[in-house]
Every structure is written in C-alpha cells, then in structure tokens.
Amino acid sequence: MDNKMDLDKHQNEGIENIPMQQRRDFLKMGLAITGIFAGGSMLSVASTFNRAHASDFAKKYPYKPHYSMVMRQDRCIDCERCMEACVKTNHVPNVHGAYRTTILEKETPDAIGGKREFIPVLCNQCNLPQCVRVCPTKATYKDKTNGIVMMKIQNCIGCLTCQEGCPYNARYFSEEKKAVDKCNFCIDTRLAHGEKLTACAFACPAEVRVFGDLSNQEDQVFKLVHQIEKQVWVLRPEAGTRPNVFYTKG
C-alpha cells in the first residue's frame, strides 16, 4: 500500500488545518464524552496518564485483551473496501440491510474547506451492552476474556429485541444463519487464526480503523484513546452503553 500515510508524519499536521466549525464540534463532543468515559474523568485520565498505574485501568478495561477500535474519522474516504472485506470474510448475506459494518455520510456545508465527513460504524462491543441485557435466552453475550459481544446462534429465537436495544443499529437478522448477526471483530474468521487485525482494519487503505488492545498501554489504540492533543469521542454517549469503539481525527 504505497498510498498509506505515515502516522508519525501525519500527527503533526497541526490544528490550524481543522475548520472552525469542526473545532466547535470537537469541543461539544468533548463535553459529551466526559460524562460517559471513566466516570467523567476522561480528560484527567489523559492528563495524568504518565503517572497512572496499570491497575487503575484494569477496572476500566476489564478484559485481556480488551479489544477496541479507534476511527480516525477524517481519513475515511468511503472507498468501502472495509465493507467489501467484511462481507467476504464473514459471509455476510447479499440482501438489503445485511451488513456488519457500514459507512455513514454527513454533509458539512458550513465547515470551511470541508464538504462532507464519512463516519464508519460497527458494533461498539459495549461494556454495558443493551443487547445482552435484553436477550431472553442469552443468545448474545459478552465474551469473558476479550469483551467481544458474541452470538450463540442456536439460542437465538429471533425476537429481535437486541436490534431494538442497540443504539448503534449494529445488528440484523440473517435468514441464512437463522440468527441475528453482528460484528465480532472477526474473532472467529481472523483473530482465531493468528491475524492481528480485523478484516475491515486490514483492508482500509487510509488507516482509518485502528484495531488493538485497550488493556495494553503500548498498544496504538490505547495511545490514541489516551492522547491529549486531539479529542476522542464515542457515538451516542447518552445511551450509556460504554462503547469500545472510539472516534478521533488525524
């Protein structure tokens, strides 16, 4: 991939490149995130990061590895290679409304120099997943080791309450699989075979999707989530599900 950008080179692009409107939005989002993340101490966590002990984070990131994804949203160009790779890797049926990940498009006519933003979305593998709470038969559950929200196909009765409960529209019913289907960070199709990245993260030419282990302070996702230079936010914080998919820019 010769069109990939070097992260280190790219990080120092400087804040002057970000339009005013977007900067305002960052600030708003920054306010929004403080309420959900680590009991409202996200910014303080970031600023005291160097002094914090690993055990402090274990409470927050209770899984090992604690899989997580960070979206560097402004890099997304909607080439949809991630979606194609996901469909191929995870045998997502070719029917309307069947997808494990997708890209949303937001027009930003007021932003200086910006016309649109693409927002990749997938299952947020929440720490407090609504879908798991509402499932009558434990057909969907949180993996005790890595925190991925999993499906136990034979338990699914197809009541679709999990779809109602999900604040991220991350689930769909698959007639082929005879169960609700959703993103599982490719645990069965890639990670179990020793791959380090999910299919979408691997396929992305712009390195939008950074996948890794939040419980590891040396991991890139940990560093991105705990940086102080750029805002980090999550989608729908008010739904209170403590998602493990984060968004940032750069």
Partner: peptide, 26 residues
C-alpha cells in the same frame, strides 16, 4: 413474528436471562 419460535420453548427454559424483560414477560 418471532423468527425462530421453536427455539423459544427450549432456550427460555434452559438458558434464561433474568435481566431480560422479554424473558420475564414470556
């Protein structure tokens, strides 16, 4: 309306989720 009602009879009994309102309702 339920996509796989026959599974309900089995897994409502052997795999109950006590935090699920739909389980309690059923």
């Amino acid at each position: 309306e339920i996509k796989l009602p026959w599974r309900m009879a089995i897994y409502n009994v052997i795999s109950p989720n006590l935090t699920s309102n739909i389980w309690w309702m059923g």
